[in-house]
Computed example of a mutant assay.
Amino acid sequence: MSNPIYLAVDLPDLARATALVQQVRGHIGGVKLGLEFFCAHGHHGVHEIAKLGLPIFLDLKLHDIPNTVAAAMQAIHVLEPAIVTIHAAGGRAMMEDAKAAAGAHTRVVAVTMLTSLDDTDIARIGYSGTAHDNVLRLADLAHQAGLDGIVCSGQEVGAVRQQWRDGFFVVPGVRPASAVLGDQKRAVTPRQARDAGASVLVIGRPIARAENPDQAARDIMATL
């Protein structure tokens, strides 16, 4: 992949979302469309963004019983996404069924621990061990289930890469050194994530909310 940057586009206004992608399309490798965008615009919105010619990453974080997740995966075949997320916490059977139901050219990756959670948050939820411990455990489960890779923070991707050499690793919560962290608690810089083994860097606000999004994307790419 020549450009690992996927721009996170979660704008509720389709015209603004399309204009943003059009503005930065020459300096990103793909577009990540999340729940806010998909709930607002559905299949139509995805088709409109896809017209701009970039790979589409549907960050839907599917998490339900195996049959329901498989049916949802089949329902998005027509969108031909390059990447789709499911939750590793759904279990091995759910992950296996999701992968089996996915399109031939769609990478299915499992979300491990959200980058908005730190060790204190994880303990309150009821998980034992650190974020790092849980990411490694869930990554192993996803590997066993036959998925293409996982989603994890840049703080864990290096360790996961060591145990899953040919995995596909999506790192969200990526922030340039000068950027505000916002609700991200386990963030790293784009360069750090890439050096640690990230396949895809999901970057949203540092580009989307920049005064000049095109220049912001250029500047981030220059650090890689």
Rank of each mutant, 00 (worst) to 15 (best):
A131H: 10
G204D: 01
R124E: 15
V9H: 07
A82C: 01
A19E: 15
G26F: 09
S178Y: 14
P206I: 03
I86M: 09
A145D: 08
F169G: 06
A210L: 05
V84P: 02
L224P: 07
A17G: 15
V69Q: 08
G26W: 09
V84L: 09
L136I: 14
S199Q: 05
V24Q: 05
P176K: 11
W164E: 03
G45Q: 04
A145E: 08
L201V: 07
I125T: 15
T115K: 01
P4T: 08
G90T: 00
D64P: 08
H132M: 12
H27Y: 15
T115M: 12
A110G: 14
D118V: 05
S116I: 09
R92G: 10
P4R: 06
M94C: 14
L20C: 04
A89G: 12
M113A: 10
L136Q: 08
A93S: 13
T106P: 03
D133H: 14
A179S: 14
T18H: 13
I83R: 01
F38K: 00
H43S: 15
V31A: 00
S178V: 08
Q22P: 05
T85F: 02
A15E: 15
Q22T: 15
V78E: 14
R186I: 08
I207D: 01
D148K: 11
V24H: 06
H143N: 09
A40M: 12
D13A: 04
G197N: 11
A216Y: 03
L14Y: 04
L114K: 04
L7W: 06
I56N: 08
G42L: 00
Q192H: 12
L52P: 00
E96W: 09
L181I: 13
Y127T: 10
L136H: 09
N67S: 14
A145Q: 10
A159W: 10
G53V: 00
V151G: 03
M95Y: 01
